[in-house]
Amino acid sequence: MSDLHNQTEIPDSSERRDFLKLGALAATVLAPGVMLYGIANSRPPEQGASSKLRWGMLIDTTKCGNGCNTCVTACNTENGLNGKTGPQDSQWIRKVNIKNLSNGFEHDLPMMCQHCENPPCVDVCPTGASMKRADGIVLVDRHICIGCRYCMMACPYKARSFVHEPITDQNPEVPRGKGCVESCTFCVQRVDRDETPACVEACNANGQNAMIFGDLNNPESEISKALSGQASVEVRADLRLNTGVRYQGI
């Protein structure tokens, strides 16, 4: 089996031509910053996620629009969620409105899996389905998730959802199914091809620019620079989970 992952796939010729043609087109359409960002972190497909990186997100809640739902919509589309908000429906990212009890000031912020360094969901999972990848992304391995929901009990952020009914027509890149627990994956399928999560991209495209995604371990990354230049907090920092998602402006 050792040769399984040492071979690079060659797309069949016609698709390859398309690729080259459209690559040129893409370069012209693309915002240069996004392109450069992508290239800087690329890794070949046969190489796994590296523990040298730690993916993280910084959310500037002062830029987050009250009532704006762009990140949520983008997440739903990317990951094939139906967008319903009943008590049994999955929500990977949600907008939380917080109102200061002493002065009444209200603002919004997005809440999702905080991709903790010490995730309680991973600690409590009996089978090891709840796991943290080398690059810090916390995932559910649905192949061995038995649907006990103990991780949902353990998560301080209420970030996880249980799939209550059968699902069809999934996004091929985002398998989802009845009886397993799921949550934000930082759009791992996108991150692995050097894109930012769908929510971040949509937030930026919408002009809010409230979310920055990047490598917390790299002092040169945009997120590290932003974090070192301004105060930020972890939600439930008292639990010392060292979250991968940080907030400014709370």
Binding site: K21, L22, A26, P172, E173, Q189, R193, A198
Partner: peptide, 25 residues
């Protein structure tokens, strides 16, 4: 088909096609 991912991103179809023939899920 085959367009590099970020370029296809218009918001309505956020699913950038994987390199054709498919990276895995």
């Amino acid at each position: 088909a085959g367009m590099p991912p970020a370029a296809s991103e218009t918001g309505t179809s956020p699913m950038a096609p994987a390199l054709a023939g498919g990276k895995t899920q």
